[in-house]
Design a protein around this nucleic acid. Structure first.
Length: 712
RNA sequence: UGGGGGAUCGUUCAACGGUAGGACAGCGGACUCUGACUCCGUCGAUCUAGGUUCAAAUCCUAGUCCCCCAGCCA
């Protein structure tokens, strides 16, 4: 079994690991109920997955909530119950994965494992009871007819012609449904409630359908299966669930939930709804995740790019980090989209303390230390953690030829580059100072293939006795004493924040990130990693956190998954240089060095820093139309390369009597403006334009710049 | 246009008639044998319009916007 150590966490007390005391409206309700001694002060929750897919981080939120509430309350309990009422979609494989995932997350249902299918017989009896009391009837309408009779959102439904069958006939028919006398879909059992209810769920909802499918637990014992809306409240009630916590979309099912318990006059569980978790740059619906798996867009449910628990586990996430994340996101009723950066923060926070440090070179560049003795290997004792001596140390071999990261050398470096360059001295982490003397390139391609350096023997261990400092420390491995490994670099699965957000327009798969996985097969990693176990986690210094892939590694051949990069302030500097902010950056430095510039009379000044906050982007006008009811506004739909168009209202109609002329123009858009709600709609940006009292014209662009490119 | 929900910094969660606070992200700086970590600083919000009140994110009225519901799925 993999990740044995993590699995042991199965007995942790979630209340103990809680770093703060989050309070939310659900816990407030429960506290209030306890105070009033409702249910004799007992708190009993449940986590009720349907075994038709793998659990994902959204389920983790629910698991942490339900099990968390149980452990926080004296005597509180949380059941695990499979909501297995639809055999056509469910599978034992999913059940097994759910066991593993819940346990791995650190929660324990003890002896309280239940299946809705265990209640089939009781559910049937309750149905008989409803029929006898005239509260349910067998309906012979086809699925299509039921839909028509149901009415619409704005029109009431019509009573089924079978609604007033006698109790005897209903009883007979329902018993024969169970006995298998009727074909699939030919009849259903419905609750008799109110076809005119404004709540569609109350328009005589279906309770049972005929479905000949082999159930993963009950086999072929049944050919009628109860519906969720009927099964769930009764299951909760039978288990004595005091607080039945579910997601927002079930809010308007609550009247039916309450109806079932009320009409049957059994223990009243209370349903409470909260907003499900959405995470940026991923999808969270089981349907979409299943699609990714089935269409081979990812390798499996536990592909490390998946937001599934098993994917996160394989990626190198720890249960603690996920629990902590669930604490931090809170619980509320507002639809929300949590920044995946918060998840990344949580795993960094955890692994920073736990992960031993190692050195690994992903894109090797050969370095020869010319003044180092031939055929000599020495060993450095390097601590496993800079702040925690208790984590010990390991020996790292060093020799005349080394590998360093290609990115750690630049022939013509910009000012802020602190790493190796011709004539520069840097520290090899834990070893020596070296100075680059010569660059060897491939004659044909011009590519740098080797560096010749000299080392200072006096700096052994990494410090210079003369007190001289170096700006940079880089990591390295000994070329003759290292491991050749495969490293998989993962990035976000989608290129847009909300890939499932388009109701019209492209399918979510159109936004898959083609660079979500890059596999490096010629990485040089430090010798000691030879002993690394599947699932074991490390920090590769200066690169990120990595774990040994539990599926594809074998003794000699190791595969490392990058869990998450380290925070990288150099990448930001680099990006700002490339992104065309260079001029502004330099100007910023300049303005700091120089005395304040003389003020311009009569003008309100903004600083260069203020101006730099504007995110100016190239946009292409795709649509333009006049705004009825406004003499000035034109409504523009502008392409900023974001995979959707932005609506922008611009007061430029006086300059553009023929709005169609605007279509196709490249314009400059202030892209990071807070959207403004206008009378005519939301305006998501501004277009730069020039004007005097009479004329107005927008600033347009020629040339090869593309939508979304930066302008400065 | 039926019913059910929801609107607070860029994001997310608080504040329950009495100083709008935290976390993440951003920005700036200090420190550093990881451009990591840590530390310090900083930016930044109550959907709109009225009303009640000494005092409103919170109460009232009227709007606006967003989400969910017409499976014999859950």
């Amino acid at each position: 079994m993999r990740d044995q150590d993590d699995t042991k966490a199965g007995t942790v007390d979630a209340a103990e690991t809680r770093t703060s005391q989050p309070t939310d409206f659900i816990r407030a309700i429960i506290a209030e109920d306890k105070k009033n001694n409702k249910n004799d002060g007992k708190v009993h929750t449940r986590f009720p997955p349907e075994p038709n897919g793998y659990l994902h981080i959204g389920h983790a939120k629910s698991i942490c909530l339900n099990f968390g509430i149980a452990t926080e309350n004296e005597g509180g309990l949380c059941n695990l119950r499979f909501d297995d009422t639809n055999p056509s979609k469910e599978d034992q494989e999913y059940i097994d994965s759910i066991f593993e995932d819940v346990r791995w997350l650190g929660f324990d249902w003890e002896d309280r494992l239940y299946y809705a299918s265990d209640y089939f017989e009781k559910l049937y009896s309750f149905a008989i009871q409803l029929i006898k009391e005239g509260k349910a009837y067998v309906c012979d309408l086809s699925a299509e007819e039921i839909r028509q009779y149901r009415g619409t959102l704005t029109e009431p439904g019509k009573d089924s012609p079978y609604r007033n069958r006698s109790v005897e006939e209903n009883l007979d028919l329902f018993q024969r449904m169970r006995a298998g006398e009727f074909s699939d879909g030919s009849r259903v059992l419905r609750a008799k409630i109110d076809m005119k209810s404004p709540n569609i769920n109350m328009r005589d909802p279906v309770l049972y359908r005929i479905l000949r499918a082999t159930h993963h637990r009950t086999g072929n014992a049944w050919c009628i299966y109860p519906m969720y809306d009927y099964t769930h409240p009764i299951s909760d009630s039978l288990e004595g669930i005091t607080h039945s916590i579910c997601t927002l979309e079930f809010e308007d099912h609550r009247p039916l939930y309450d109806w079932s318990l009320g009409e049957l006059d059994i223990f009243r569980s209370r349903q409470i709804e909260f907003a499900r978790l959405n995470l940026t740059y991923t999808v969270m619906s089981k349907r979409k995740l299943l699609q990714l798996v089935q269409e081979g867009l990812v390798s499996s449910w536990d592909d490390p790019r998946m937001p599934t628990i098993s994917g996160l586990r394989r990626r190198g996430y720890t249960p603690e980090s996920i629990r902590n994340f669930c604490d931090k996101i809170g619980v509320a009723k507002k639809d929300s989209m949590v920044d995946i950066a918060l998840l990344e923060h949580c795993i960094r926070e955890d692994l920073n303390d736990k992960a031993p440090r190692r050195m690994a070179v992903l894109n090797p560049l050969k370095v020869v230390i010319d003044n180092y003795p031939q055929d000599t290997i020495e060993e450095f004792e390097i601590p496993n953690h800079p702040d925690n001596p208790a984590m010990g140390s390991r020996k790292v071999p060093f020799g005349r030829t080394l590998c360093i990261e290609r990115d750690d050398f630049m022939e013509d470096p910009p000012k802020k580059f602190f790493r190796l360059a011709p004539g520069r001295e840097v520290r090899l982490r834990g070893a020596y100072f070296i100075t680059c003397n010569e660059v060897v390139r491939d004659e044909a391609t011009g590519e740098v293939v080797e560096l010749h350096c000299s080392y200072d023997p006096a700096t052994r261990g990494g410090d210079a006795p003369d007190g001289r400092k170096v700006k940079g420390t880089i990591h390295w491995v000994c070329e003759d004493r290292c491991l050749l490994s495969e490293v998989r670099l993962y990035d976000r699965l989608f290129t847009v924040e909300n890939p499932g957000g388009d109701k019209e327009g492209p399918d979510f798969k159109a936004y898959l990130n083609p660079e979500s996985l890059s596999t490096l097969r010629a990485c040089r990693v430090e010798w000691s990693l030879n002993d690394a176990k599947p699932g074991e986690k490390f920090q590769f210094e200066r690169l990120g956190y990595f774990c040994v892939d539990a599926r594809d590694s074998s003794g000699a051949h190791k595969v490392f998954n990058r869990t998450v990069t380290l925070r990288d302030s150099w990448a930001k500097i680099e990006k700002s240089i490339e992104g065309g902010k260079k001029d502004i950056g330099d100007a910023r430095e300049q303005s700091r060095r120089e005395a304040p510039a003389p003020s311009l009379p009569g003008k309100d000044e903004v600083t260069i820093e203020d101006f730099a906050k504007l995110d100016l982007r190239v946009g292409i006008v795709r649509e333009a139309s006049v705004v009825e009811g406004s003499s000035k506004l034109i409504r523009l739909m502008v392409d900023l390369g974001e995979g959707r168009l932005r609506q922008i209202f611009a007061g430029i109609r006086p300059g553009y009597p023929k709005v169609d002329d605007l279509v196709g123009h490249k314009v400059i858009v202030v892209a990071n403006l807070k959207p403004r709600q206008m009378k005519f709609g939301l305006s998501e940006g501004m277009i730069l334009a020039g004007y005097d009292d009479e004329k107005i014209s927008i600033a347009t662009f020629e040339g090869s710049l593309q939508p979304g490119d930066k302008v400065s």
